[in-house]
Write a protein that binds this DNA or RNA. Structure first.
Lengths: 100, 100
DNA sequence: ACCATAGGCAAGTGAGCACTTGCCTATCAA
DNA sequence: TTGATAGGCAAGTGCTCACTTGCCTATGGT
């Protein structure tokens, strides 16, 4: 459902998590937590990050794989394509297209 | 700010408005209202649509121009580009636009 | 002038969401 | 086993947001 995708992108913390996974995919929950605290100065609980990851996973933006007691989170940007497919972005390389 | 963009996309009614403006750009408020009622069976007040359009305009997705007592709303999909610029969608062969 | 049309402003309400708190399960090392 | 690490589940709280209600302004036709 497209609803899950846009709802997942609506939160700034979730977008920061996507940024972190873009920089390094395959992180664990605790790894993401400490990165958010260090780099972004986000005082956020582990449970909150876990819930964010669940929302991102429901949107298909994050995929998970378990190995022992670790759960790794991988980024999947494929669902983002349906955005520009739904509302095509007119690239400025085209000829005079009307918008001044 | 990117926050306005994703907040604007978070609501399903606003996304439907973007769909309508994609189909026909330059509609007035009442035109959008009646289209939402007819085509999408959305029982929604005029004020609600007006507030949605304000949010879309704050996000830069809709631009307006006044002519007399009419206010026309035009779609601008340019802000959507920053989404796939922020999280690049992995295309199989570089920045080509052709679908694989 | 009148009146209908097109749109704007502001306060109030209800529901959804982010976040916390607290407790529980599973895996690995000593 | 014990203890520490990695993660999950569920109820509660505060705040944001979508929508309504009501009234107001401006433009155009007759």
């Amino acid at each position: 459902m497209a609803d899950d995708l846009f709802k997942a992108l609506a939160d700034p913390t979730r977008r920061t998590i996507l940024d972190e996974l873009t920089e390094k995919s395959g992180q664990t929950l605790f790894e993401i937590c400490s990165r958010l605290a260090m780099k972004h100065r986000l005082g956020i609980s582990r449970q909150a990050v876990s819930q964010h990851l669940a929302v991102l996973e429901a949107a298909g933006l994050v995929e998970t794989r378990r190995e022992g007691r670790y759960k790794f989170h991988d980024l999947n940007t494929a669902p983002l394509r349906q955005i520009t497919e739904r509302w095509p972005t007119t690239y400025p390389s085209g000829p005079e297209k009307g918008t001044p």
